[in-house]
Amino acid sequence: MKAAITADGIRKRYGDIQAVDGVTLTVETGEFYGILGPNGAGKTTTLEILEGIREADEGHVELLGMNPWPRNAHLLPRIGVQFQASAFFDRLTARETIHTFASLYGVGTKPADAMLDRVGLSDLGGVRAEKLSGGQAQRLSIACALVHNPELVFLDEPTTGLDPQARRNLWDLLRDINAEGRTVILTTHYLDEAEILCDRVSVMDHGKVLKTGTPAALVRELDQTTRITVESGVVEASVVRDLLATAGAEVASVEDDGVSLSVATHQPAPVLSVLAEQGALRGLEVRGATLEDVFLHLTGREYRA
């Protein structure tokens, strides 16, 4: 099956700023693909080039087997786009808004109303767009992107600014969209979101793709220690060190800050066994590396405005 998106060496410059610098990626049909990166990494510009909204200075893009630039009328009914910031006609209700979007694609009001119901907004159909909460507006934006039943959906930071409950509800919707066979490409700042939703991710920084792979493979490649934490005061750190040395366990560090006793190791099993024998498993927490660790390893920890 032909890939849904291929990009080869795309570049985009704005004056002195190289926003996108030689990005190459492939998104398979039916894949949930994430693009991660700090502010200013080039995620949104890359997405806009893939969508056919911006022209690349260099490189080649193929979207569903066609060139998206200049704007390709044959592609538009096959893709759905949810922008980072959505602007609706404030005085239109949610129902009037999705009817307007549906009419642009020749879609009737009945399927539009069904989509409004699917995103949980049917009870708010008569509410003006300006009165919707952040989460409700995001769901309306996604409904408008899906109303014409596209094969490929672009989502640019769809959960930014949402409360935890609204984010989780939106995750369920995005999973359903992908499970129906649609290809989904997502940009996000939330690493837990990418880890849960995406089949593969590309980590970007300074306009370049630094690494691509499944979240699990990228985490394994990092080869970080597992950190085992228990409540302090049950057993001394020095005793744990001696017991682990006797057991032949490879340990990077054993630390006690008066609140928690933490052991960093590549061999969690013997550490857990020793702590269990000492009755020291109260407050147990085992944390392996996550996609956040990969992200920080690749992009650094400096603050980005």
Rank of each mutant, 00 (worst) to 15 (best):
T24E: 06
A19R: 06
G42A: 05
V27P: 08
A41G: 08
L64M: 09
L64T: 08
G42R: 05
K12D: 07
I35S: 12
E48P: 15
L25W: 02
L36I: 07
T46S: 12
G42F: 10
N39I: 00
V20D: 07
G59M: 13
A19D: 00
E55T: 15
V20S: 06
A41K: 10
I53Y: 12
G15C: 04
E55R: 08
I35K: 14
V20Q: 09
Y14N: 01
E62G: 11
E55Q: 11
V20P: 04
I35M: 15
G37C: 03
E62L: 10
D21Q: 06
T44V: 14
N39H: 02
A19I: 05
L47H: 10
I49G: 03
L36A: 03
G59F: 10
D57N: 07
D57E: 15
D16S: 09
A19K: 07
L36C: 04
Y14I: 00
I49D: 04
E28F: 05
V20I: 14
A41W: 06
G59A: 12
V23P: 13
G59L: 14
P38E: 09
T26K: 00
N39C: 09
V23Q: 07
E58L: 13
E51L: 13
E55D: 15
L25M: 09
T46M: 14
L50A: 11
G37P: 07
D57S: 12
G34S: 07
R11H: 15
E31S: 00
L36M: 06
P38W: 01
I35Q: 14
V23T: 03
R11T: 05
T46L: 08
Y33I: 02
V61W: 02
I53Q: 11
T26Y: 04
A19S: 11
I35V: 12
G22V: 09
H60G: 05
L47S: 08
L47E: 13
L25K: 00
Y14C: 01
V23C: 09
A41R: 11
R11P: 03
D21N: 15
E28C: 13
R13Y: 00
I35L: 15
E31F: 00
E48V: 15
K12F: 08
E62H: 03
G34D: 01
D57C: 12
D16Q: 06
I17C: 02
K12H: 08
T46Q: 11
Y14M: 00
T45F: 14
G30K: 03
E58Q: 15
R54I: 02
T44W: 02
L64Y: 03
F32R: 05
T44R: 01
E62N: 10
E55A: 13
L47D: 15
L47R: 10
D21G: 04
E51S: 12
T44K: 01
L36W: 01
V23Y: 12
